[in-house]
């Protein structure tokens, strides 16, 4: 039921965002008289390019999230391992990657990773955007690790004991009893993390990846008109908003459902 409400709301917000862009453009049209009429047409003209750049932002966000999750889940489990050394190391890595500024991590990976590598005698280029994916996947990994740790610890101790008393091994207990229950609690913060990551992707423009933000700046340079500044940035803003807002709403809906359940 909430899905229909969600789409209706999303569409309403999208219209509101579009209206905002239009209003801003028209407001400028009032002040900058002769060339005014062309502002909307200029936005439309640059829209495909900005949208292509925006798609790269999304691609980077999806890949970073995927890599960060695949690496973060075992890291999170290692954080609750009985083996002291494993547990300490996992916690240290988690804390370090969670508490470092994303932009600094991004710069680090940009400069630490080679721009090409050799495989079977052939040199394969290592483009900047892939390095950016890795750079963003690092803090995602740390955050996913904490989400997994928190989710697992939120399951009552009695569930472990119950499984133990039925002769489940620790591995079987984690994968058959604990994680399936924790998943429901981990999903909302995981989605929240993804929304934050998606909104943080324009950081890659700073390290030289041609994303949506780079394209907006390129368009502004090409047109050399200050009255385009606001409409073009607002266009990119609207794209991010339309993408992230439904995720935020779905997260909230899931949280509400989890509240009722437990």
């Amino acid at each position: 039921m909430f899905e229909t409400k969600l789409t209706a709301r999303g569409v309403a917000i999208a219209f509101a965002a579009a209206a905002f862009v239009a209003a801003v453009s028209l407001a400028h049209a009032e002040t900058a008289s002769p060339a005014a009429a062309s502002i909307l047409s200029l936005v439309v003209k640059w829209l495909p390019l900005i949208f292509t750049g925006f798609l790269l932002n999304l691609l980077v966000s999806v890949l970073s999230m995927a890599i960060g999750t695949v690496a973060g889940v075992p890291l999170g489990l290692a954080q609750i391992a009985r083996h002291r050394v494993v547990q300490r190391c996992a916690s240290a890595v988690t804390q370090f990657t969670r508490n470092a500024p994303w932009l600094v991590l991004l710069f680090l990976t940009m400069f630490l990773l080679p721009f090409q590598f050799r495989l079977f005698g052939q040199s394969i280029p290592f483009p900047a955007w892939i390095k950016a994916v890795i750079g963003l996947a690092i803090p995602v990994m740390g955050n996913v690790s904490e989400i997994v740790r928190g989710g697992v610890l939120s399951i009552p101790r009695a569930q472990w004991e119950s499984a133990e008393s039925l002769a489940f091994s620790p591995t079987q207990t984690v994968f058959k009893i604990i994680l399936p229950q924790a998943l429901k609690r981990m999903l909302p913060p995981w989605m929240n993390l993804y929304a934050i990551l998606a909104m943080a992707t324009p950081l890659i423009a700073i390290v030289g990846v041609q994303d949506g933000l780079t394209d907006v700046r390129g368009a502004l340079v090409a047109e050399n008109r200050t009255d385009l500044l606001l409409p073009l940035y607002a266009t990119l803003l609207a794209m991010f908003f339309i993408y992230c807002y439904p995720i935020a709403m779905a997260t909230r809906a899931l949280e509400r459902r989890a509240e009722v359940k437990f």
Binding site: A158, Q159, E161, S162, S165, A167
Partner: peptide
């Protein structure tokens, strides 16, 4: 695990999955 296969336990709070 070998001992627990021979000894079952039922808890006060049921602790079902």
């Amino acid at each position: 695990l070998a001992v627990r296969r021979k000894v079952g336990i039922v808890f006060q709070q049921y602790n079902l999955f």
